[in-house]
């Protein structure tokens, strides 16, 4: 049984039919990436999984349990973490409080401290800014905070929506290293990225979304060699 599987999902924004029968499977221990151009429906897929929008048709199974009608907070409790597009930093909570919010479902203060330390080791910059309001951080710092906060949840399945957005190249490298390291430690990852080449270099498998439909799905290696993918997403003619 897959850790996560989407069966024929149809999601709407009012009358806009954003996902038209999307099916995706993510196995325990995998890194899976969703690629596609702007407006293809990548973020919508993640939002549907985390319960921010409910599909009009289809099922989302986490561990075989249908979560498509559940509220986001209940899905978080079921072990799913979502670092949303646009970061979602609480502007008037400090860096520390933002991180603590990430561990809202954790009751053990020592465990929270441990995870926070892990985040600070990864992004020392955040530690320097610990008492500063989230809203006053730079864009890149906010992105670091969003990722560190996602890690505070220590989810079984972590969904990252464009984690490299707005980060300097060194930090992009760092993020992808972190993704690999997390995955080695057992976290399953569903990754949405504009940077398809980077995404395919860390992922095991990938799906290509176009206008709300999956058009190709394959191993990352094969996708990198797929002519259509090369042309449309890797900038290779």
């Amino acid at each position: 049984m897959s850790l996560l599987s989407l069966h024929n999902i149809h999601s709407f924004y009012g009358h806009i039919h954003a996902l038209k029968g999307v099916s995706v499977d993510v196995e325990e221990g995998e890194i899976v990436t969703l690629i596609g151009s702007n407006g293809a429906g990548k973020s919508t897929t993640l939002r549907t999984i985390s319960g921010m929008i409910h599909p009009r048709q289809g099922q989302v199974l986490l561990d075989g349990r249908d979560i498509s009608r559940m509220k986001p907070h209940a899905i978080v409790l079921a072990g799913l973490g979502h670092v949303p597009e646009g970061r979602g930093i609480f502007p008037k909570l400090t860096v520390r409080e933002n991180l603590e919010m990430g561990a809202f479902t954790v009751n053990d203060p020592e465990e929270i401290d441990r995870r926070m330390k892990f985040g600070f080791d990864m992004f020392p910059r955040l530690k320097e800014r610990i008492g500063q309001y989230g809203g006053t951080l730079s864009g890149g710092e906010q992105q670091m905070l969003a990722i560190a906060r996602g890690l505070m949840m220590n989810p079984r399945l972590l969904m990252l929506d464009e984690p490299s957005m707005g980060l300097a190249p060194v930090l992009v490298e760092l993020i992808f290293d972190i993704i690999k390291a997390l995955n080695k430690k057992g976290t399953t990852i569903l990754l949405v990225e504009q940077n398809a080449l980077m995404a395919l270099s860390v992922a095991h498998r990938g799906y290509v979304l176009q206008n709300g439909e999956i058009v190709v799905s394959d191993t990352a290696e094969s996708l990198k060699r797929n002519g259509m993918v090369q042309k449309a997403y890797l900038g290779i003619d």
């Binding site: 985390s50 319960g51 921010m52 509220k71 986001p72 907070h73 209940a74 978080v76 409790l77 979502h82 949303p84 979602g88 930093i89 609480f90 502007p91 008037k92 909570l93 919010m101 990430g102 809202f104 479902t105 906060r149 949840m153």
Partner: peptide, 12 residues
């Protein structure tokens, strides 16, 4: 500050 992000933190 933000309903939807709060819900992604596990807050009801």
């Amino acid at each position: 500050q933000d309903h939807s992000t709060a819900s992604l933190m596990g807050i009801d």
